[in-house]
Design a protein around this nucleic acid. Structure first.
Length: 152
DNA sequence: GCCAACGTTGGC
DNA sequence: GCCAACGTTGGC
């Protein structure tokens, strides 16, 4: 069964243009348990909204898909990595990542401000005050609704 | 197991 | 750059 997700990235660190250029990439560096657990639930072929955060404007800029199920994030035991975690080892990995593949880079951005205006999207974690989760599930109806926003 | 203190996220 | 909201840590 295909599921839908939203993943945040700061474009200065990793943007949709980076993914477009690379075609596929590991989604490393997630160090939040809820986000990690959602990645573990992902399956190859699941679709992803690619969200640019900490920029102006923040919003969804395109889509990607899961092309490799969750596996240990090796940057967590790399002492030279910014994502190093002393409690994660190859024998007992604490953090996981998936690989994602570029699908679409939209010609326009669906901004957070716009998403917040639609009652249909009020249940999304993204549109709720104070939400910082960087990987979250999206319902099929939310996915389809957001795609129609794009065509307007 | 509680909770204060701290560090981080991320919109504005 | 500010700061509200959140997650994590660690003392007790």
């Amino acid at each position: 069964m295909q599921n839908y997700w939203l993943m945040k990235s700061e474009p200065d660190a990793f943007s949709i243009n980076d993914l477009k250029r690379l075609k596929r990439s590991p989604w490393d560096g997630v160090r939040n348990y809820q986000a990690r657990n959602f990645m573990k639930e992902m399956n190859e072929g699941d679709l992803i909204f690619f969200y640019h955060s900490s920029c102006n404007p923040a919003g969804i800029v395109g889509t990607a898909k899961v092309c490799k199920n969750a596996y240990p994030d090796h940057t967590s035991w790399d002492k030279n990595s910014a994502y190093y975690d002393v409690k994660s080892t190859p024998e007992k990995p604490r953090w996981f990542m998936v690989d994602v593949e570029f699908v679409e880079h939209w010609s326009s951005i669906v901004t957070l401000a716009e998403l917040k205006q639609h009652p249909e999207l009020a249940d999304m974690r993204l549109t709720q005050k104070g939400s910082r989760l960087s990987v979250m599930p999206i319902t099929k109806s939310e996915w389809e609704y957001i795609v129609t926003l794009l065509k307007k």
